[in-house]
């Protein structure tokens, strides 16, 4: 579904990502791991249009999206979350979700109030999905850290994405919340959404991923089933060395 071919990005001579190629399937959870500075987030940012690759090609459902602006990529059906929390703290939790409706729609469509009730119901459903129904009217800034992570998931889902890119969805949340978030990822996979997850929590990522891609020094060094990857000598070296 998502095809990345020979993508390279350098920042002032620093090779962040070099010649990365891989494909991400729908209806599967793919883990993207690697030591700090491996280029994982840079790869995410290139897929989503926040960085333009120096070379290479990114195709989504056989449509080229290389260098398209972030809003166009999102409207095409790729949702993402960020490493740090990004919510609109002064808007209510429900309003945060509602921001994501009608991606790519014209300004005039956004002015219409007609669809508002329908969208409100859909937003309630999405909040129920992540278990935040009782927080709908509270400002997003008042939610706990873990709850804001859940809200980010609900916002992404409101885009009705075919592919979700999640940057450390369980970093810094407690065990109970981790279990909950991993459960949501599985639910979304079972609905046919492709999920690509960057995660440093090895236990979590090993458990949830159907497939693992390992990056180090801007390159993909391993790609396969978690059990296989765990045995790969290059991977062990990258993590220990």
């Amino acid at each position: 579904m998502l095809e990345i071919r020979g993508v390279t990005k350098h920042f002032d001579g620093v090779k962040a990502v070099t010649e990365v190629s891989c494909t991400i399937a729908k209806g599967a959870i793919t883990g993207l791991i690697g030591p700090n500075g491996a280029g994982k987030t840079t790869l995410f940012n290139m897929i989503c249009g926040y960085h333009v690759p120096d070379s290479g090609l990114i195709c989504f459902n056989s449509l080229e999206i290389t260098g398209k602006p972030p809003y166009a990529v999102a409207a095409a059906g790729i949702g993402r979350t960020f490493q740090n929390l990004r919510t609109i703290k002064k808007l209510s939790t429900l309003d945060n979700v509602m921001l994501a409706f009608n991606p790519g729609a014209s300004l005039f469509a956004s002015l219409k109030k007609g669809k508002e009730r329908q969208n409100r119901e859909r937003a309630q459903e999405l909040l129920a999905f992540v278990g935040l129904s009782d927080k709908a009217e509270e400002p997003a800034g008042e939610l706990s850290y873990g709850q804001q992570k859940l809200l980010n998931l609900a916002c992404c889902r409101a885009l009705d994405p075919a592919l979700l890119l999640l940057d450390e969805p369980v970093a810094g949340v407690n065990q109970e919340m981790t279990v909950k978030i991993l459960g949501l990822l599985r639910d979304m996979r079972d609905e046919g959404i492709g999920v690509l997850v960057i995660e440093h929590n090895m236990e979590a990522v090993m458990e949830v991923s159907d497939r693992l891609i390992v990056m180090a020094g801007g390159r993909v060094i391993a790609d396969g089933e978690p059990a296989q990857v765990r045995e790969n000598s290059e991977v062990i070296e990258a993590y220990l060395g």
Binding site: Y71, A75, I88, L91, L99
Partner: peptide
Amino acid sequence: SPFGRILKAIREDEIFVQSLGKNVTAY
């Protein structure tokens, strides 16, 4: 309106609004 909601969101976090499929510059 939904339009105004997006404007208020842009004031707080443009990058987030972009990630939700909104052309921030047009708004």
